[in-house]
Simulated scan of single mutants.
Amino acid sequence: MLGSIGIGVIFVMVFGGYLLAGGKLAIIMKSLPFELMMIGGAAVGAFLVSNDSHVLKQTGKDIGKVFKGPKWSPADYRDLLCLLFELIRLARSNPVGLEEHIEAPQTSSIFSRYPKICTDHEAIDLICDTFRAASMNYDDPHQVEEVLDKRMETNRHHALHSSHALQSMADALPALGIVAAVLGVIKTMASIDQPPEVLGKMIGGALVGTFLGVFLAYGIVGPFANKVRAVVEEDDHFYQLIREVLVANLHQHPANICIEVGRQNTPHTLRPSFSDIETALRSLKQDAA
């Protein structure tokens, strides 16, 4: 919603201010299709040259994040803490019984209680792989912790590919706008024998290229890149919570303490309250009784 509102504000303020100042849209609209073809086409072509098919698909999906926002809500963080609590409690009371859940989470009675989390394969794999590694009796829990850190850093790096690609496009657009403007000037110079009113319109049309390149860079594509990065970084807190809880479990802290460690390390805008977690965990204990 905010993404759509922001784009609307950009167009209304820029073109509204231009019209109120006495500008005329006719010259912009006449040149826009050709300038957009040159600038937009060159930007898309450069994007295709500099990225592989995986980044192209990921960027297409990530653009939706500009309008949808982060994937996880405070309720999802509460559900994640409840899921981890159930798994930790089972791992300590019945390690053999845990295996059926981490080896086949898609059919697990525990995981099935949290359908939204189950749709995120990376979150599920992160949980299951860490419990599996813990069952291998590592001499030092820091070994598993180091593996977790490297894995999360790699995932974060890949998740930010589309943001970097969009930012590269935004950086190139002003220069491409100048290219289009120079071509417009070349066209104008070829018609130097025309009267001033004709040359004025041709020069104005050439300058539309410079305007369009800067406008798209700083008004559209650049903000899109920043928003995608912000959403990726906020969603990364979800995986960071998994890390914090499971590392605390590796150090053999009580299950309730492990959950509280994860809750405390969640940003306050996403952090479920202590009472909410207590109520949810109490309900789980009653169901298991």
Rank of each mutant, 00 (worst) to 15 (best):
I10H: 02
P33R: 01
K68G: 10
L20C: 08
K71Y: 13
I28R: 04
D76N: 14
G45F: 04
G60V: 04
I27Y: 09
G45A: 12
V9G: 01
G45E: 08
D52F: 07
F47Y: 14
N51K: 04
Q58M: 10
P70S: 13
K30G: 10
G40D: 06
G64E: 13
V66F: 14
L56A: 05
D52Y: 08
F47N: 01
K65V: 08
L19Q: 06
A46M: 13
I10D: 02
G40C: 07
G60H: 04
F67S: 03
K68R: 15
I10F: 08
Y77F: 15
A26Y: 13
T59V: 05
G17Y: 04
I63P: 00
L56G: 05
M37L: 15
S73N: 12
I63K: 05
A26R: 15
P70R: 04
H54T: 08
V14M: 03
E35W: 03
K61E: 09
E35S: 11
P33K: 01
H54L: 11
V55F: 01
M38R: 10
W72T: 09
D62F: 02
W72Y: 13
W72N: 04
L36E: 00
D76E: 13
F15G: 00
L56Y: 06
G64N: 14
A75C: 12
S53Y: 09
D76A: 11
V12N: 03
H54R: 10
G45C: 08
K30H: 13
K65E: 10
P74I: 05
G16M: 03
G22R: 00
A26P: 08
G60P: 01
V12M: 14
D76Y: 12
G64F: 15
G17Q: 06
A42D: 08
V66H: 09
I63S: 00
V49D: 02
G41V: 05
K71Q: 15
M37F: 15
G60S: 05
D62W: 03
V66R: 11
L48H: 00
V55T: 09
M13A: 12
K24H: 13
K57I: 10
K61H: 07
F34S: 12
Q58L: 14
M29H: 10
K65Y: 13
A43G: 01
L25H: 01
F34T: 11
F34N: 11
G60L: 07
L19I: 10
I27T: 11
Q58G: 07
A21Q: 13
L36F: 10
D76S: 12
M37Q: 09
Y18F: 15
D62K: 07
G64Y: 14
V44K: 05
G23N: 02
L20A: 12
V66P: 07
F15H: 01
L48C: 09
F11L: 06
G41C: 06
I63G: 01
K68Y: 14
K68A: 15
V49Y: 04
G45H: 02
K68E: 11
D62V: 07
G69N: 06
H54P: 00
K71A: 15
L32T: 06
Q58D: 14
Y77R: 02
E35Y: 03
L32R: 09
K30V: 14
P74V: 00
L19T: 07
V12Y: 11
V9H: 01
I28E: 12
D62G: 03
S73A: 15
A43I: 06
P33E: 01
K65I: 03
K57M: 04
G16P: 02
S50I: 08
V9T: 01
L20T: 09
I63V: 11
P70H: 05
M29Y: 11
